[in-house]
Computed example of a mutant assay.
Amino acid sequence: MAARTLVVVGGTSGLGLEIARSAVARGDRVVVTGRHAARAAEVAETLGDHARGLGVDLAEPTMIGAALADVEAVDGLVLAAIERDANAVKEYDVARALRLVTLKLVGYTEVVHALLPRMAASAETGIVMFGGRAKDRPYPGSTTVSTVNGGVEGLVRTLALELAPIRANAIHPGIVGDSPFWAAKPPEVLAAYRARTPSGELATMADVVDAVEFLLRNRSVTGASLNVDCGWEVT
Rank of each mutant, 00 (worst) to 15 (best):
E42D: 15
E42R: 06
E42Y: 11
V43E: 06
V43P: 00
V43S: 12
A44T: 11
A44C: 09
E45K: 12
E45C: 09
E45I: 13
E45M: 12
T46F: 05
T46G: 14
T46K: 10
T46H: 09
L47R: 13
L47N: 13
D49E: 15
H50Y: 10
H50T: 14
H50P: 08
A51K: 13
A51P: 15
A51H: 15
A51N: 12
G53V: 01
G53K: 03
G53N: 13
L54V: 01
L54Q: 07
L54P: 01
L54E: 05
L54C: 06
G55N: 01
G55I: 08
G55P: 02
G55Q: 00
G55C: 10
V56D: 01
V56P: 02
V56F: 02
D57H: 10
D57Q: 04
A59E: 09
A59D: 04
A59S: 11
A59L: 09
E60T: 03
E60M: 09
E60G: 00
E60Q: 15
E60Y: 01
P61S: 08
P61I: 11
P61A: 05
P61D: 10
T62M: 08
T62H: 13
T62W: 15
T62A: 07
M63R: 08
M63C: 00
M63T: 07
M63L: 10
M63A: 03
I64Y: 05
I64D: 12
I64P: 03
G65A: 01
G65T: 07
G65K: 10
A66W: 09
A66E: 12
A66Y: 07
A66H: 14
A67C: 04
A67Q: 02
A67N: 02
L68S: 00
L68E: 00
L68G: 03
A69T: 08
A69W: 07
A69P: 00
A69Q: 10
A69K: 08
D70I: 04
D70A: 10
D70P: 02
V71P: 01
V71Q: 00
V71L: 03
V71Y: 06
V71M: 11
E72K: 14
E72N: 14
E72H: 06
A73W: 04
A73P: 02
A73H: 08
V74W: 06
V74Y: 06
V74D: 03
V74E: 02
V74G: 06
D75F: 06
D75V: 09
D75S: 14
D75W: 11
D75L: 07
G76V: 01
G76W: 05
G76P: 13
G76T: 05
L77T: 14
L77C: 04
L77D: 00
V78F: 09
V78W: 09
V78R: 11
V78I: 12
L79I: 09
L79Q: 04
A80D: 13
A80R: 13
A80T: 15
A80W: 11
A80Q: 15
A81Q: 08
A81Y: 11
A81R: 07
A81V: 03
A81G: 01
I82M: 06
I82P: 00
I82A: 14
I82G: 03
I82F: 09
E83Q: 14
E83T: 05
E83N: 14
R84N: 14
R84V: 12
R84C: 06
R84Y: 15
D85M: 07
D85A: 13
